[in-house]
Deep mutational scan, measured.
Amino acid sequence: MDVFMKGLSKAKEGVVAAAEKTKQGVAEAAGKTKEGVLYVGSKTKEGVVHGVATVAEKTKEQVTNVGGAVVTGVTAVAQKTVEGAGSIAAATGFVKKDQLGKNEEGAPQEGILEDMPVDPDNEAYEMPSEEGYQDYEPEA
């Protein structure tokens, strides 16, 4: 019985440690998101679009440190934060509304985080759909 109880105690310690790591990862992701939003706020009209992409990228980098179902929630929060940063930029006159959601080359930025393969159960990952990809044929 002692062996059984000791095993359960060790398992509990492992769960607590994993929860603490997840909590730490979420806190880091939130900190990076805040950094990115402050970065966007300090940019001029020309830099705002690039700044919004930076927020998304920093958040995406930190999301990889967070495991399990938390990833889905962090990704949703990050996307809403990026959308909010863009709205703030438009409201303050840093950028025109028609410039939001495009990178410096004018290509749409939507789907940055949505296409990231995420499995809350950590069982399997699927690649994003290939609808947006084109076949590449090298020139002879």
Score class of each variant (00 low, 15 high):
Tyr39Met: 12
Ser9Met: 15
Pro108Lys: 07
Thr44Ile: 10
Glu35Asp: 08
Glu130Val: 10
Met5Lys: 04
Leu8Val: 08
Ala90Phe: 15
Pro128Val: 02
Lys80Phe: 02
Thr81Asn: 02
Phe4Ile: 14
Gly47Glu: 10
Lys96Tyr: 04
Gly86Trp: 15
Gln24Ile: 12
Lys45Thr: 07
Glu57Met: 13
Leu113Phe: 14
Gly132Met: 04
Ala78Leu: 03
Thr22Tyr: 00
Val37Ser: 12
Lys60His: 03
Gly106Glu: 08
Glu13Met: 12
Gly84Trp: 08
Ile88Ser: 02
Glu105Asp: 13
Lys12Asn: 04
Leu38Phe: 14
Asn65Ser: 08
Ala85Leu: 03
Val55Gln: 00
Lys10Asn: 15
Ser42His: 05
Ile88Gly: 05
Glu105Phe: 09
Met5Phe: 00
Glu20Leu: 08
Gly7Val: 12
Val26His: 00
Ala90Asn: 13
Gly36Ile: 01
Ala78Ile: 02
Gly51Pro: 08
Val48Tyr: 09
Tyr39Lys: 11
Glu137Ala: 12
Asn103Tyr: 13
Met116Thr: 08
Thr92Gly: 06
Ala53Pro: 00
Glu35Gly: 07
Gly84Pro: 02
Val71Gly: 04
Val63Lys: 02
Thr59Lys: 01
Gln62Thr: 09
Val70Ile: 11
Glu35Met: 12
Val26Cys: 11
Lys80Asp: 02
Asp115Val: 13
Gln62Leu: 07
Gly41Asp: 01
Ala76Phe: 03
Gln109His: 07
Val82Glu: 02
Glu83Gly: 12
Glu20Phe: 09
Lys102His: 05
Gln24Met: 06
Gly86Gln: 10
Gln109Gly: 01
Lys97Arg: 13
Tyr136Arg: 09
Val70Thr: 03
Val49Asn: 02
Glu57Gln: 04
Asp135Arg: 08
Glu57Asn: 15
Gln134His: 03
Ala17Tyr: 09
Glu139Tyr: 10
Glu131Ile: 03
Tyr125Ser: 03
Ala27Ile: 10
Glu126Thr: 06
Pro108Trp: 15
Phe94Met: 10
Val77Gly: 07
Pro138Ser: 12
Val82His: 12
Asp115Cys: 04
Glu104Asp: 07
Tyr136Thr: 08
Thr33Asn: 00
Tyr125Gln: 15
Lys32Ala: 04
Ile88Asp: 03
Gly31Pro: 00
Asn122Glu: 11
Gly14Val: 12
Lys45Glu: 00
Gly93Tyr: 04
Lys45Phe: 14
Glu105Thr: 12
Lys12Trp: 03
Ala29Thr: 08
Ala107Asn: 10
Asp135Val: 07
Lys43Cys: 12
Gln109Met: 06
Val37Gln: 00
Ala78Thr: 11
Ala27Gly: 06
Val70Gly: 02
Glu130Asn: 08
Thr64Arg: 15
Ala124His: 09
Pro128Gln: 01
Lys102Cys: 00
Val48Met: 08
Thr72Leu: 03
Lys32His: 01
Lys34Met: 10
Asp98Lys: 14
Val95Thr: 15
Gly67Thr: 06
Lys6Cys: 02
Thr44Ala: 10
Thr81Ser: 04
Ala69Met: 14
Val77Gln: 11
Met127Ile: 10
Gln109Arg: 11
Val74Thr: 00
Lys102Arg: 07
Gln79Asp: 01
Gln134Trp: 14
Gly36Arg: 14
Ala78Asn: 01
Gly86Asn: 02
Gly31Ala: 03
Asp2Asn: 11
Leu113Pro: 12
Pro120Glu: 06
Gln134Asn: 10
Gly67Trp: 10
Lys12Ala: 01
Gln79Phe: 10
Val118Gly: 07
Ala29Asp: 00
Ala17His: 10
Gly73Gln: 12
Ser129Asn: 07
Glu114Tyr: 13
Ala19Phe: 09
Ala89Cys: 11
Val3Ser: 08
Tyr136Met: 04
Ala89Phe: 09
Lys32Cys: 08
Ala124Lys: 06
Lys23Leu: 03
Glu130Met: 10
Gly132Lys: 13
Ala124Gly: 15
Lys97Thr: 06
Lys12Val: 13
Ala85Asp: 04
Ala107Thr: 12
Glu28Phe: 06
Gly86Ala: 14
Thr44Asn: 02
Ser87Leu: 06
Thr22Val: 14
Tyr125Cys: 04
Phe94Pro: 04
Glu114Val: 14
Ala91Tyr: 03
Asp121Phe: 10
Ala56Tyr: 13
Ser42Pro: 12
Tyr39Pro: 00
Glu105Met: 13
Glu28Gly: 05
Lys96Gly: 09
Ala140Thr: 07
Lys43Pro: 00
Lys80Tyr: 15
Lys60Asp: 00
Gln134Phe: 05
Ile88Leu: 14
Asp121Ser: 08
Glu105Ile: 10
Ser129Asp: 10
Ser129Thr: 08
Gly67Lys: 11
Ala85Gly: 04
Val3Gly: 01
Thr75Trp: 14
Glu35Arg: 13
Ala90Trp: 11
Phe94Lys: 15
Ala11Gln: 01
Lys60Ala: 10
Gly41Met: 06
Val16Asp: 11
Tyr136Pro: 03
Val37Tyr: 06
Ala30Trp: 01
Glu57Pro: 01
His50Phe: 05
His50Met: 08
Ser87Ala: 12
Val66Trp: 09
Thr75Glu: 05
Gly86Leu: 08
Pro128Tyr: 06
Ala76Ser: 04
Ile112Gln: 13
Gly73Phe: 02
Val82Leu: 08
Val40Arg: 02
Asp135Pro: 06
Glu110Pro: 10
Gly36Asp: 09
Val52Gln: 01
Ser9Trp: 09
Glu83Gln: 11
Gly36Ser: 10
Met1Cys: 00
Val70Pro: 00
Thr75Gln: 14
Val48Thr: 08
Thr75Arg: 05
Val3Ala: 03
Glu20Tyr: 06
Val95Lys: 00
Met116Lys: 08
Ala78Cys: 14
Val77Asp: 14
Pro138Ala: 12
Gly93Lys: 15
Val15Lys: 00
Ala56Cys: 09
Ile88Tyr: 01
Gly73Asp: 02
Asp121Ile: 13
Thr72Ser: 15
Gln134Val: 07
Glu20Cys: 10
Ala56Phe: 14
Gly84Ile: 12
Gly51Gln: 10
Met116Tyr: 09
Gly7Met: 15
Lys97Trp: 15
Glu139Phe: 13
Gly73Met: 06
Val63Phe: 15
Thr75Pro: 01
Ala91Gln: 05
Phe4Cys: 07
Glu123Gly: 15
Ser42Gln: 10
Glu61Ile: 03
Thr59Ile: 13
Ala17Arg: 11
Leu8Trp: 11
Gln99Val: 12
Gly111Gln: 04
Leu38Lys: 07
Pro108Gly: 12
Lys21Leu: 07
Ala78Phe: 12
Glu20His: 15
Tyr136Cys: 02
Ala29Phe: 06
Val70Met: 14
Leu8Glu: 02
Leu100Pro: 06
Asp119Asn: 04
Ala30Tyr: 08
Glu126Ser: 05
